[in-house]
């Protein structure tokens, strides 16, 4: 498919789902009153519901989904491995651990800034560990096993940190950190995470040439004028910023970065750089759709969106593993 047409279609899809997300909610505002409340004003309750409750939720779906999609595409390109994904290789779980460790310890008071600071540190550590393990030529198996180990360790330490908190509510928040949610977030969360994510996107996009060159492996990439240490740093920091900032405000949401690049790749020329923007848009669309589903699948009882993405993503992952095995990559 033509790259422009693909991006156009994806933008249209994201836009529709974004509006859909704005129009769904228990308060059953009619769409016109809702849109009026969002843009023009009108009844006070409608304004607050639209601007303070639904808008931040839809925006987070957009930017966190974009981050997960583009980070997945970048990691796959960088590691030349179609199973690389921020969740599977343990970046999301470790970002959660970082956020939990700093926030619940009360070291930063109850400041919300503790969340992104901790999550970024956690994500950075995870990406560095994975790249250290994946240095040179790693098999898919090594990568996934390292990710499983890292995720399990981070998950266990997250549970431990939450259980040690004297706050009686902390232990109930394990599920949020392991299977994220966008319920009742506010614009504060959007402003807290958006600049960091945008910096992450920029770093990832700036590495697009290196990702293309890495199609041939590191030796040829270097001979094509690629500064590999700089590319590695950009990808590490870009993924850590995008995934870390997202995890800080929504908890760990898995599989978006795995599923989306796979669905999008056949629609592109398969160049790693051509996959970045469409995967971001696809990630936004998938997370917005999953978040809408999380609100309407079980009436009156909202699901964690991370549960839904795992329900879609885990079988997909199994299918991919089976196929990868057959093709003996």
């Amino acid at each position: 498919m033509n790259a422009l047409r693909l991006s156009g279609l994806l933008i249209l899809l994201v836009l529709m789902l974004f509006i859909g997300s704005l129009l769904i909610g228990p308060a059953a505002l009619d769409p016109i009153a809702g849109m009026k409340g969002l843009f023009a004003g009108g009844e006070e309750a409608a304004i607050i519901i639209m601007r303070e409750v639904r808008l931040p939720r839809a925006l987070l779906g957009l930017i966190v989904g974009f981050s997960l999609g583009i980070a997945g595409a970048a990691l796959q390109g960088f590691l030349r491995n179609p199973l690389a994904e921020p969740g599977l290789i343990g970046v999301s779980a470790t970002a959660s651990l970082g956020a939990v460790a700093i926030f619940y310890s009360g070291l930063a008071g109850s400041s919300m800034l503790a969340l992104p600071a901790g999550a970024l540190a956690g994500a950075l550590v995870a990406v560095l560990i994975i790249l250290a393990i994946a240095a040179g030529n790693t098999t898919t198996l090594t990568l996934i096993l390292a990710g499983v180990a890292l995720s399990s360790l981070s998950g266990a330490l997250t549970s431990l940190a939450l259980n040690l908190s004297p706050n009686p509510f902390a232990s109930y928040e394990i599920i949020f950190w392991l299977l994220g949610s966008m319920k009742d977030r506010s614009m504060v969360h959007v402003w807290l995470s958006l600049p960091l994510m945008a910096a992450g996107w920029a770093l990832i996009l700036a590495s697009s040439r290196a990702l293309d060159a890495l199609t041939f492996g590191e030796a040829t990439a270097a001979s094509l004028g690629t500064n590999l240490p700089r590319a590695r740093l950009s990808i590490v920091c870009g993924v850590a910023l995008a995934v870390g900032a997202g995890t800080a405000v929504t908890g760990a949401i898995g599989f978006i970065g795995l599923v989306v690049p796979h669905l999008i790749r056949p629609l592109t020329d398969r160049m790693p750089s051509s996959l970045l923007m469409p995967s971001g848009l696809g990630g936004a669309a998938l997370l917005l759709a999953a978040d809408i589903a999380a609100r309407i699948v079980v009436p009156s009882r909202e699901l964690n969106v991370g549960v839904l993405t795992a329900l879609i993503g885990a079988p997909f992952f199994l299918w991919l593993v089976a196929r990868t095995r057959r093709e003996a990559i």
């Binding site: 926030f103 008071g109 908190s165 928040e173 506010s186």
Partner: peptide, 13 residues
């Protein structure tokens, strides 16, 4: 000892 549960009541809405 902060928790997200406690933070909800700080929501601007």
């Amino acid at each position: 000892a902060p928790s997200l549960a406690d933070q909800l009541v700080e929501h601007p809405a």
